[in-house]
Amino acid sequence: MSVALLEARGLRKHFPLRGGVLQRTRAWVRAVDEVAFQVRAGETVGIVGESGCGKSTLARLLLRLVEPDAGHVWFDGEDVLRALPSRMKRLRRDMQLVFQDPHASLNPRLTIEDAVAFSLLVHGVRRAEAREKARMLLGRVGLDPRLYGRRYPHELSGGQRQRVNIARALVLDPKLLLLDEPVSSLDKSVQAQVLNLLQELKAERALTYVFISHDLNVIEYVSDRVLVMYLGRVVESGTADALAESPKHPYTQALYASAPSMDPDRRMERPPIAGDPPNPINPPSGCRFRTRCAFAMPKCAEAAPAPVAVAAGHDVACYLYDEVRT
């Protein structure tokens, strides 16, 4: 097995919530806590979790758009968080992000051709050449540059904008693409088209994907391996098949049970999760899922369980599986 293309270890980001006249920190939003995982070249790693569990923050940490409070990120063997500005600029060509909100992710004052070409201009490509390449990529993602190139984002539909976002992310020929809920805001039929486009592009350009979504069906469809996040922590990780067949963590079990499944045997076998997710501001002590967990024990409140391997490449952070290790 090749070395990891992307590796994160101990990533943590807590946002201060300030208030009052002196802007003192009132509380901390524990958006991402002790997240560690690897992405091997060529695979698709899915990250799934409820809204607000820190998926977008994690993506931004990996790209160093937000500086983490602690932890390490390596890309292609290089320490991303230690990279000097010039080196960082070079690294950014290799890891790109498709943003979540197709309405806010395009500058309303740039034509889509210029929006895609901008990244190339940043890296010193001449304007004419950058435009040419941008037009070529727009064509590849299904937007005829002669019809759409000179248009502004407000003239496009959500699906078309998301195609522009994909073109913009690919124009620098990255090795790794992070996709932050790329299809969540789209209609079902458009979702399928965009997902198929992404699969084609991946094969064509030998890309590696980190695919973020709250939709388990989408995650199961695209991913080789899946990370399940709950309130800023990874609770379980394993191959997509292993998780679908034998989810271990009570949260994962509930998640798979509540997703409308194609397989009647799996449907509603387990109770769906009770209650709303607790707030990432002052989350529960110890295991963050314990307040909604049917198997909660006294020690769950004491300390967060460390990930345990229940099978090769299948890790669970839950005390129910502690005996496996000992």
């Binding site: 931004r60 790209l63 758009l65 960082m88 600029k89 070079r90 950014r92 060509r93 790109q96 992000l97 943003f99 979540q100 909100d101 806010a104 992710s105 395009l106 500058n107 929006a115 901008f118 990244s119 940043v122 890296h123 976002n165 913009r168 620098l172």
Partner: peptide, 12 residues
């Protein structure tokens, strides 16, 4: 807004 983050992500 995300397009500013996108510009940063492209190395601008």
């Amino acid at each position: 807004l995300e397009y500013v983050a996108a510009a940063r992500a492209s190395g601008a």
